[in-house]
Every structure is written in structure tokens, then in C-alpha cells.
Design a protein around this nucleic acid. Structure first.
Length: 927
RNA sequence: GCUCAGAUGGUGGAACUGGUAGACACGCAGGACUUAAAAUCCUGUGCCCUCAACAGGCGUGCGGGUUCGAUUCCCGCUCUGAGUACCA
């Protein structure tokens, strides 16, 4: 029979499903291996050809690991809460659960037809109550925990209460809100329950905070920093403004140092680790207090990384939002300050970020004193100081900091050099070399000693100390949206209380509309009869990252009704050995997941500190758009004539996107084009060489650009095995590249040629049991080793080439030997599982046994050659090749080459200075 | 601006620790089979010079360097892509 991919693929997909071939067992003598894909959000558009790239890679890896004797866990599920379904619900009134269900069905069909070896019995959906019950449960654990810096881990809030009962707040070293109270044990016990709860909320790992949030009026929701791009929402591109709001937050900052250190112990791409490091933004420095004379507080606290430059401070700058601004403004300066604040508020959204060149600011009229030399220093406000970082105040050292320098020049403030080799003619010089001058007791010291001396002095005075600052802020954990997990909290007397575990899951209630209420409350405010017996439910829902921050544990034990996953299951699977997904989740999902994992480790709920041992980023598949060029007449109107790309220079034209599916190798199919749109039915064409050549551009893959390629079409035309191999053949997995269907024929031809090895000219199955030849064994063992090496280093594209070479070689050898072909089927099966299963059965093996058979053993002895065709080069330029026995030692090779007639010819009598012989590699003659 | 990644034929890409640059595939050109087309098969294909060559020259973004030998290592630059955005 000819290679009938359609029938073969359908049959085997059915077989795998019916027999649960890829069901993973939680008990096994085999070593475990956990391969995870980032689960998709099931969007209405379905999969395009870029989505499966990572899934194909992980599937090849999983199938390979099974052949290598591992018990492989390779699950799949859906991150099914999210905005698009809700947006659709707002427009159509259809419940997001229904949209989601439909979309999941499409995704499932598309995934199934690619022949993935997922264990579907473990499927999870973040929007299913069975699942989000446990998301809510983890939220409750966070609420019931605080971060003990002495133990450097999260601990139960009950333990903190016990400490307060015994010792009051003394001796508590916690990551908490800034304005926690100090109290004795007696004072604590004297507090009302409400007062105690209010105080404890300042310690909990999930807590309420009055915070400035990115509010997007058009979406009616709050966005995380990474969902805002240049003042507009990443999704939809709507304007975003700052708004004060009481929000649930996660104290991720407690884990900043551990999140940073943990990066050293995981095998992730360096650029991605770098992104997380930047995001965490650790900086080592000191906090310094600048005493104030007549104010309600004694000092202004600043953070600096260059405390050694403190004698160069000539002014102090506060962020316009700093809480002391109003108080420090003298009556004479009031007008100026207020005008400046109004001005910065107005431009805050876009301009404040893009406009970093213009210097602006205003003088408050007040002064602080330098803590070390008592000098009187002006206090200014300026928007180059950010309220959200450090203390919202900086000590300005114009000689060492370029921003301070520009500010000082602009407002005519003094600039004092503090290091002898500093050059501050035209700009600040932040050097750390040289000796200090104008710096009192550190004059003459070097950077290291100066810093230590200054910190010691400040500590002695009680006016400063060494400090480490992190840029990473606590994560806001609430959305004013419908389609997300309800927060398991109700409010009584304005205080949040957890619902009881028995009440989980707190189900998402039905609402009449998916919009905010008239009074501006979130959509959940519309739910009737949705009330806790003791108070009002929280109306926010959890953000998109909640459900995805722990899902890999649910796969370990997906149907457990009593726990998020059993202790046994977690003890067996431990962590994810290989995680494949896009780098766009670098600072979102991948950071939050590590945070939750560390928290769960602290509570002994899980066993590993880091969830994802090895991570691979698959590159983005971009779109490759095709264009036609419409002739434009003298009046600038478009005509119905189209010019081929090579000739468009001679005409006035306008470029139009054309559907890439009616273009083949950049040649427009004119008949299909005429049928594409009614208006083109009688279009005319100016051709080159009888063809219409389209223009090409790489853009994002999107419907509006007509460059979306649907995997369904390709599976229909070539089959899943071809598509799987072609996606790998396209190039290195980690590289981004435009999709181009040109070339898929080559892979298809390869599979037909592979099929042909097993068949005679009448397409009858025909293999022979004769002993394989040396050449055949060599071809086989070459590919056995090559695939091993390639898969282990995730170089799937090179394997595909090697398969082609192997099949080409065996075809040339007219090899149909069972001993060879049987092994070849096993080696190819991770890449092209359907065709291999079919041939495996034709070879007489039991159906379905291929997936768990053993990968063939590489035998190096088949690779040994007697001689080698040495490239002979002269001064590094290859001139010819000579066949020389590999048994010959370098000296003998040299002698042989020196005497050889061909070499003499190239030398043309020139004297040989030196001959380099690398055995089995090369001979280089230097003249 | 800063950080990171990358640049190889007409195209996607290969060359793993410095050792034959362009594997494999697409495309293109020519041929076989066919009434014809599709499919299939064969041959050629980095560029330049040349009637042609198993004759020569040039070739891995650009300019230098190290080396017997550099796509690979070092220094400087250009361009492209991604992330980040006054972080004190």
C-alpha cells in the first residue's frame, strides 16, 4: 500500500486514546521524568501553526525518554480563566464558561490530530471548581502566613500571634508593612479582636493595601505593571491611569533574595535569568537620614548606592508625591510647588517616561542638614525621583550622578568634586577610582575604605545603616473582573475574614451582565443571593496568574478531592524536569510560580525549592506576509491591474496584503486570487516570466494581515507526521523565525521515501531477513548516535536532516533488511510516531508496544574506518584530498604527503617550512 | 540610554572541543518518463573570471588581531530582534 497518512494517523490516534498508551503511573520502578508545556489559554481563534512548536518538541522529548526507560509524566491542560472570553461575554451575553468550553473542544481536536503523547487523564482547567478550589486554598495558606526573616521562611500567623502574646512586637523580624505598631504583650492582649486583626493584616503574605494601581477605565480593571506598555494596556491598547484603590497584594518582595539566589541553581536560558535578575533589581547601598529642623518628623530618609559621596551632596530631592512635600513647602514657595505638582500630574502618563531629557523641579524653601558635616542643604522636588522606589527621596551628588548634574546646572546649584581624579567639566563622573577630597574624615581614602568608614560613622550616629534595596514590588492580586477565581474572603466590620475550608470552593456566582455595577463595583456585585452568613464577599477576582502558579502539582494527582495533590504523588514526581514555553512569561508566570513554590516549600507542602529544573524557550513563530501591487492611476485611484514584484519599480503602485494560502513559493495563484474576492474577479496582471511574484515581509501572525497558516490545513494535505517534522526542520527550537510553508514538500517526500524502504515497486510490504552489510549498519548506527546527541541538547532540526541522510543512504544501498529497518523505526518514532507505529506492526510487533520499547544501543565498532580522505591544505587553503590509512602515524602521513605527486604539483617547487598532521582530520603544509 | 541575543548562498539552515564552509531541504535550470499535466526519477546550482576545466581569484555583517589553520577565540564598529526604561 502507498503511504496513506490520513488513515494511518486516524487509526493510531484512536488506538492511543482507546488503550491509554501514555497514561503515567504514580508508582514505578523506572526513574521519573516530568516534561511540562506551558498550558494554553484557549482562545477563540484556535491554534495557528506557531503554537504547537513547543508541544512538538516536548512530545519528541517525552517519547524519546520513554524509549530510554523513564516513567514520563507529560500532561496538558488549559489556563481557562481570562479576559477574551469575558470580553466576548460582555459583547454577546454568552456565559464565558460556554465560550471556554467550545474553545477547549477546538483546541483538543487540534492537539489530538498532531499525535501528542499527553496523558489526558490528568487534564486540568483553571476555571473548573475542582481546580480553583485549591487555588483558593493556597490563597488561604498565604493569608495565614507571615515571613520570618530570622528563620528566612514563611511561618504560620498563629506562631506570630503566640509571640505577640508572650513578648509583644519586640524581637519580631518580619517582612511587613512599613507602619507596623510597637507594643508590649500586655498592650497586645488589651487590643480588641478587630484591632489585633487589623495589625496582623500588616504581616500576612496576602494582604490588603491602599495602593496606586494601573486602572484601565476601558477594560474596567486594574492591570499589573507587566500588562501596561507605555501607558497603554498591553491587551487592547487602552489608556491606563493611576488610581488609589484598596487591593489584595502578595508579599512577593519577602522572597526577593531567595528568588534571586535560586536562579543560580536552575538550568534556564541565561537571558531569561538575566531578565528576572533585572526585575528583582537588587542594589546594595545605605539608607541615610538627613536631619530636619522644624517639622513633624526629625529627618528625611534617603537610599543611596554611593554613600561614599555624601560630602558631595549639595541638595536633596523628593518625589513630587512624597508625603512631606506639603509640610516642607514654605509660604513663599507654595505657588511654585503646587504649580509643579499639577504639571507633573498632568503629564504623568506618557510623557514622564518618554521625556527624560527636560530638567524640571521646584524648590520647597526648606533645608535639611548633612548628617556628617552639618551643612545646610536645600530641599527640592522633581519628577526624576520616583515615589515608588527606595524612600522616594535622594541625596543629590551632582559631581557623581548625571541626573543630579543636569539638575544642578539647570538650577544653578553648587557642584562639589569629591575625588581627586574626577573630571566634571561637562558631565558627572561617577568614578570609584582615586582618593577622596573635600570629604572631611575620608579625605585620602579609596572607595572601599571610604564606604566602610562612612557607614560605620552613620551607624554610630544612629543616622544611617547599610541597606539592600529591591526594585521588585509586591504583586497586586485582584482584578475587578468576572471571569476569574473568587477570593475566599468576606468582610465584616471592614475587616477581611477567610471563609472556612469546608466552604471551598467558593463558586463563581451567576450575574445578569458581565459589567461593573452602576456604583462602580466589580461584576460580582451584580450577583443576587451571594452573601456569606457573616458578611459581604470580596467582589474582586484573582488575577490571571493565580491558577498558573501551581498547576504542575495538580497534574501529579489531578483528581484528588481531599488535597491539591497527595504527599505521595509529590514525593514521587517532585518537580518539573523539563519545562518548555515562551520567554514572554519571564517576569510574570515564571516569577510568580517560583514564589508560590518557595512558599509551599516553606510550609512543607512540596519538596523542592525550585519548581522547574530545566527550562527551554521556544522561539516565536512570526508571520510571513505576501503582497500584491495594485497599479495606481494618475489621480491616485487604485485600478484593477496588478504588477509583479520585480516590475513594480516602473509603476506607481500601492501594496495590498494577499492571503498567503493562495500563494505558492511567492508565486500568486491567479485563478485563486480572482476567486478570493469578488472585486478581483476580472483583475489584470503584469507578469514577469509568465508569473506573478508577490512581495514578502515578516510581521506578526494575524488574521488582518492574511498571513495565518492553520495547522488543520497542513495536516489535511500532508499529515501530522510531516507537519511535526517540518516544524522541527525549520530551524533551532529557541530561535524566532517567520513561518514559511515552502519546503514542507521536502519533509513529505522524505516520509514517502522512508515508507518506500519497506515496500517494493508494487507497494507491497517487503523486508528481507538477510544479514545487513557493513555500510547498512554504519548508516543505522550513525543515526542512532546522532539522534541521541541531538535530542539531549534539544537540537531537533539537525536530527531531521540526519534522518534524511540515513534514508537517502539506505535507499542508495537498496536496503530492506529487517534488522536495520526495525531499529530505524524506533529511532524515528519520537518524531513521526504514526508512520512508525504502522510499520512497527507490519514488521510483526504487537500493536502499541513501540511506545515503550527500548531505544537501540549504539555500537561504535560499526563506525570504524580503515582509511580517511585527508584534506591536504597549503597555508590553510584546501587543495586536494588523499586517501590515507588511519593506522598510519603522523610522521608516516607527513612523509607520504611530502612525496606524493599531487602535492608536488601544488607546491610548484616551493620549499616546505613545516607540515602539520592532525590524525584523522587534516594535513596542512606551510610554505 | 542600558541589558541580552543574533548576522553564513536566491531561501530555511548545517558545520558539536579552532581542522575540507555551505550538510540537509526549498527554489531555480536542464533532462528522463508521459499524447499532456501531476507525481516520480536523474544532473547541475556560493560569487567572479573563463568556450571549458578535478586552472585561478574572492567568499560566513564591517575593520583589525592571535594561530600552521578562524563561521568558531580576542579587540573595535555597523545593523537587526527582544527585554527594560530617570531605580539614586
Amino acid at each position: 500500500m502507498d503511504y496513506q497518512f490520513k488513515k494511518i494517523e486516524q487509526d493510531w490516534q484512536k488506538f492511543w486514546a482507546d488503550n491509554q498508551t501514555f497514561k503515567a503511573d504514580n508508582n514505578s520502578d523506572k526513574p521519573k521524568y516530568y516534561v511540562l508545556d506551558m498550558f494554553p489559554y484557549p482562545s477563540g481563534a484556535g491554534l495557528h501553526v506557531g503554537h504547537p512548536l513547543g508541544y512538538i518538541a516536548s512530545d519528541i522529548f517525552s517519547r524519546y525518554k520513554r524509549l530510554k526507560g523513564f516513567n514520563v509524566l507529560h500532561p496538558m491542560g488549559y489556563d481557562s480563566f481570562g479576559l477574551p472570553a469575558e470580553q466576548y461575554a460582555i459583547q454577546t451575553g454568552q456565559h464565558p464558561a460556554i465560550t471556554t468550553e467550545t474553545n477547549i473542544a477546538t483546541y483538543r481536536r487540534q492537539l489530538d490530530q498532531l499525535g501528542f503523547s499527553f496523558d489526558w487523564s490528568r487534564e486540568v482547567r483553571t476555571s473548573s471548581p475542582d481546580y480553583y478550589k485549591w487555588t483558593q486554598w493556597i490563597f488561604m495558606q498565604l493569608f495565614n502566613s507571615w515571613y520570618n526573616k530570622d528563620a528566612d521562611k514563611a511561618e504560620s500567623i498563629a506562631k506570630l500571634v503566640a509571640h505577640f502574646d508572650q513578648n509583644g512586637s519586640a524581637g519580631v523580624n518580619a517582612v511587613c508593612d512599613e507602619e507596623v505598631a510597637s507594643f508590649t504583650a500586655d498592650e497586645w492582649k488589651a487590643k480588641t479582636n478587630e484591632e489585633q486583626q487589623a495589625e496582623l493584616l500588616k504581616y500576612r503574605l496576602t494582604y490588603l493595601r491602599e495602593s496606586t494601581v494601573n486602572w484601565c477605565p476601558a477594560l474596567g480593571t486594574v492591570l499589573a505593571n507587566d500588562e501596561v506598555k507605555d501607558g497603554f494596556s498591553e491587551r487592547g491598547g487602552f489608556p491606563v491611569e493611576q488610581k488609589k484603590m484598596n487591593q489584595w497584594s502578595m508579599r512577593i518582595s519577602a522572597y526577593a533574595e531567595r528568588l534571586l539566589q535560586g536562579l543560580n541553581n536552575i538550568d534556564w536560558p541565561e537571558p531569561l535569568k538575566e531578565m528576572q535578575r533585572n526585575w528583582i533589581g537588587k542594589s546594595t547601598g545605605a539608607s541615610v537620614r538627613f536631619p530636619l529642623a522644624d517639622a513633624s518628623v526629625d529627618y528625611i530618609e534617603v537610599f543611596t548606592t554611593r554613600v561614599d559621596t555624601i560630602f558631595g551632596v549639595t541638595f536633596v530631592v523628593l518625589a513630587p508625591e512624597h508625603e512631606l512635600v506639603a509640610e516642607l513647602t514654605t509660604p513663599e514657595q507654595k505657588q511654585g510647588i503646587e504649580a509643579y505638582i499639577t504639571q507633573t500630574k498632568k503629564k504623568s502618563e506618557l510623557d514622564r517616561m518618554s521625556d527624560t531629557k527636560t530638567v524640571s523641579g521646584a524648590f520647597t524653601g526648606s533645608y535639611v542638614t548633612n548628617p556628617l558635616n552639618g551643612e545646610k542643604i536645600q530641599i527640592w522636588i522633581a519628577d526624576y525621583v520616583l515615589a515608588g522606589y527606595g524612600t522616594g527621596a535622594v541625596m543629590a551628588v551632582p559631581s557623581g550622578d548625571q541626573r543630579d548634574y543636569l539638575f544642578a546646572k539647570h538650577f544653578n546649584l553648587p557642584i562639589v568634586p569629591i575625588i581627586d581624579i574626577q573630571n566634571i567639566e561637562t558631565e558627572a563622573d561617577p568614578t570609584k577610582e582615586g582618593k577622596y577630597i573635600n570629604s572631611d574624615f575620608i579625605n585620602g581614602l579609596d572607595y572601599k575604605n571610604a564606604t566602610a568608614t562612612v557607614v560605620a560613622k552613620l551607624e554610630e550616629l544612629g543616622l544611617g545603616k547599610a541597606k539592600i534595596n529591591y526594585r521588585m514590588r509586591d504583586a497586586i492580586f485582584g482584578r475587578q473582573r468576572y471571569w476569574g477565581e473568587p477570593v475566599p474572603v468576606y468582610f465584616k466590620d471592614d475587616l477581611p475574614h477567610l471563609i472556612s475550608e469546608a466552604e471551598l470552593p467558593l463558586l463563581l456566582p451567576e450575574v445578569d451582565k458581565y459589567l461593573p455595577t452602576e456604583s462602580g463595583e466589580p461584576p460580582l456585585g451584580r450577583a443576587t443571593d451571594w452573601k456569606h452568613p457573616d458578611g459581604e464577599y470580596e467582589l474582586s477576582t484573582m488575577p490571571g496568574w493565580a491558577g498558573s502558579s501551581w498547576y504542575w502539582y495538580r497534574y501529579m494527582d489531578a483528581h484528588n478531592a481531599n488535597e491539591f495533590a497527595s504527599k505521595d504523588a509529590i514525593a514521587y514526581w517532585k518537580d518539573v524536569d523539563l519545562y518548555i514555553g515562551g520567554s514572554e512569561h519571564a517576569t510574570g508566570h515564571l516569577l510568580y510560580s517560583r514564589f508560590w513554590n518557595k512558599f509551599m516549600k516553606d510550609l512543607d507542602l512540596v519538596v523542592e525549592e525550585e519548581p522547574f529544573k530545566k527550562l527551554i524557550n521556544q522561539g516565536m513563530i512570526q508571520g510571513r506576509s505576501n503582497f500584491v501591487y495594485r497599479l495606481v492611476d494618475a489621480e491616485g485611484r487604485g485600478t484593477n491591474t496588478f504588477v509583479s514584484n520585480g516590475l513594480k519599480g516602473d509603476h506607481k503602485t500601492s501594496a495590498l496584503h494577499v492571503d498567503v494560502n493562495i500563494v505558492d513559493n511567492d508565486v500568486l495563484n491567479i485563478e485563486k486570487f480572482k476567486a478570493w474576492r469578488e472585486e478581483y474577479a476580472d483583475a489584470e496582471f503584469i507578469l514577469e516570466n509568465g508569473k506573478y511574484i508577490c512581495g514578502v515581509e515578516v510581521e506578526k501572525m494575524s488574521k488582518s494581515k492574511f498571513n495565518v497558516v492553520n495547522p488543520d490545513d497542513l495536516v489535511e494535505r500532508y499529515g501530522a507526521d510531516t507537519l511535526r517534522m517540518y516544524e522541527m526542520f525549520l530551524g533551532p527550537l529557541e530561535q524566532s523565525k517567520p513561518w514559511n510553508t515552502n519546503g514542507i514538500e521536502g519533509v513529505f517526500k522524505f516520509l514517502r521515501k522512508f515508507w518506500k524502504l519497506f515496500h517494493n515497486n508494487d507497494w507491497e510490504f517487503n523486508v528481507s531477513d538477510t544479514e545487513p552489510s557493513k555500510a547498512e549498519l554504519k548508516a543505522l548506527h550513525k543515526i542512532i548516535r546522532k539522534v541521541e546527541e541531538d535530542v539531549e541538547r534539544f537540537s531537533f532540526n539537525t536530527s531531521v536532516s540526519s534522518f534524511m541522510i540515513a534514508v537517502n543512504e539506505l535507499t542508495d544501498l537498496k536496503c530492506n533488511k529487517r534488522a536495520i529497518l526495525r531499529e530505524l523505526v524506533v529511532v524515528l518514532s519520537p518524531y513521526a510516531p504514526h508512520i512508525c507505529e504502522e510499520l512497527w506492526v507490519l514488521l510483526g510487533n504487537p500493536a502499541g508496544s513501540l511506545s515503550h520499547t527500548a531505544y537501540p544501543k549504539y555500537n561504535a565498532s560499526y563506525m570504524i574506518e580503515d582509511d580517511f580522505s585527508y584534506p591536504i591544505s597549503i597555508n590553510g587553503k584546501t587543495k586536494t584530498n588523499l586517501n590515507i590509512a588511519l593506522s598510519m602515524d603522523p610522521a608516516a602521513v607527513e612523509a607520504y604527503v611530502r612525496e606524493h605527486a599531487d602535492v608536488q604539483k601544488y607546491l610548484a617547487g616551493a620549499p616546505i617550512k613545516k607540515v602539520i598532521v592532525v590524525k584523522g582530520r587534516i594535513v596542512n603544509i606551510v610554505i
